[in-house]
Amino acid sequence: MEWFDLTVVTGSLPEFWRGLWMTLHLTGIALIIGFGFAVPLSIARVSKNPWVSAPVRAYTYFFRGTPMLVQLLLVYYGIGQSEWMQQMWEAGNPFWLLFRDAYFCALLAFSLNTCAYQLEMFAGAIRNTPNGEVEAAKAMGMTRSTALRRIILPSALRRALPPFSNEVILMLQGSAIASAVTLVDLTGAARNVYSRHYAPFEAFIFAGLLYLVVTFVLVGLFRVAENRWLAHLQPRRSASDAKKN
């Protein structure tokens, strides 16, 4: 195969593995942080009190309305250029020094971005909670917060599972922009290999394959999760169907 020189890939395998690992933990941690904030914020988002819901709405409006790359560049290069920030760095302020680190900047931008998407997803699911479930909770004498905790949230989060799996996969692939701020993620590794060997096919096809494999595994995991937590929403199988399995 003249157009595909396998030695380019085999010679750079450690770089690709390191890049893959970077991609995985960067997106993984960002998703977890995003989720942690998205759940409480989604409750604020559906609040009838405009003082509570409006700020959350403004936040999601900004972060869903601008590209993640722009957000990342703002956090990394934008903040780094301010005189004040540079003074803080020179003074060795441990909190602001975090912003000097490319990994932290990427994590911050990714978390803020995915949190905005996740919280709108969850808010939508909360709004779509069947009235019957809410009324039943009330009839049982549950307070609003108990109903939220025991009925509405578990039900909404389950129903949000399919769109959530999409968000996870979009974040995995969206994290490819991390290489714009010097992080050597999977795409960054491919770009390094590409520029070293002038071999675009080899570098990017292999990186693409790795993304594909990870996506495939994630899709499989979410299918298992959906079968487990969304089983009650699936059409009931007849006895003969059940036997087949």
Partner: peptide, 18 residues
């Protein structure tokens, strides 16, 4: 070695002390 897509970005990070 920290690699940048553009040299301008390397200057930015040199100035900011990264």
């Amino acid at each position: 070695i920290v690699r940048y897509a553009k040299q301008d970005e390397a200057y930015l990070d040199l100035k900011s002390g990264r």
